[in-house]
């Protein structure tokens, strides 16, 4: 540890804050039924939930990237009332309770939602499908990507883009060869955050997509259900989710941050 250059008394609330997180997580690890841990997390229902969670989170992250990167660029490169309104709108799911998001999604994509009939005609049934899970996850996770990437894009500014244009690069070339590489650290951490948020999504999914093993019951939904049936399994699965989260955070920390160096 380096020498502390802050008021010593701040250590008390700081330690308290750390304990607030550490004690419950530690308690969970202590109370888990280690003897049956393997069996608990490898039951058919658990494996189905974990596999579904990973699949849907990956798919949702891809959608977050496809839709979020353009959104972030538009937000980073525009200003004015319209841009401010758009930003507030895009970031809304960040501050909204996920269950509200689920209700909103129902009003749009549900069978009796405003788009439900159109989707019906097109032969698309979203309610109770894995698609609904992906939509719900994308809805709640996209703001994390947009926020993170927009910050990186704003920090990078347009100086390099201007230079690239005067070197004869068209807008698309500038975007792919200059804009995105320069914002890569923000893009990577935004992607990881979005993936983590997808993995943890619960409220919007249970409201909008329902809960059926292998189709819509992701790991958080399985944990919530197991609380009723087999609390030991709920604790064990929670620990699995903690492990995944720790991995994801480790990823964020380990990402190469040297790309932004030497911008003079």
């Amino acid at each position: 540890m380096t020498r502390a250059n802050f008021p010593r008394w701040l250590l008390v609330p700081a330690v308290l804050g750390a304990l607030l997180v550490a004690v419950p997580i530690g308690a969970m690890a202590l109370t888990v039924d280690w003897a049956n841990f393997g069996a608990l997390i490898t039951s058919e229902a658990s494996r189905a939930a974990l596999w579904l969670s990973l699949r849907t989170a990956a798919a949702s992250t891809v959608f977050c990237l496809l839709l979020g990167i353009p959104l972030a660029l538009v937000l980073a490169r525009t200003s004015g009332t319209a841009a401010t309104l758009l930003r507030s709108l895009v970031l809304l799911p960040l501050v909204l309770p996920p269950v509200v998001g689920g209700i909103a999604l129902l009003q749009a994509f549900g069978r009796r939602g405003i788009l439900g009939h159109t989707l019906d005609v097109l032969g698309l049934e979203i309610a109770f499908s894995t698609t609904a899970v992906v939509i719900a996850q994308t809805f709640v996770a996209m703001p994390f990507l947009v926020l993170s990437l927009e910050g990186a894009l704003r920090a990078a500014g347009t100086r390099y883009e201007d230079v690239a244009a005067t070197l004869g690069a068209g807008p698309t070339t500038v975007f792919t060869r200059v804009t995105l590489p320069l914002a890569l650290p923000g893009l990577v951490s935004g992607t990881i955050l979005a993936f983590a948020r997808c993995l943890g999504e619960f409220g919007a999914t249970i409201t909008f997509a329902g809960s059926l093993q292998g189709t819509t019951r992701t790991l958080p939904l399985e944990i919530y259900l197991q609380r009723e049936g087999d609390p030991r399994a709920a604790v064990a699965l929670s620990l699995v989710l903690v492990a995944v989260a720790v991995l994801v955070i480790g990823f964020t920390r380990a990402r190469p941050g040297s790309l932004s160096a030497g911008t003079s």
Binding site: A127, F128, I206, S211, L212, Y224
Partner: peptide
Amino acid sequence: KPVSEEQSVTD
């Protein structure tokens, strides 16, 4: 064959 198995009656 349910399309969803909910947590509670309310759901």
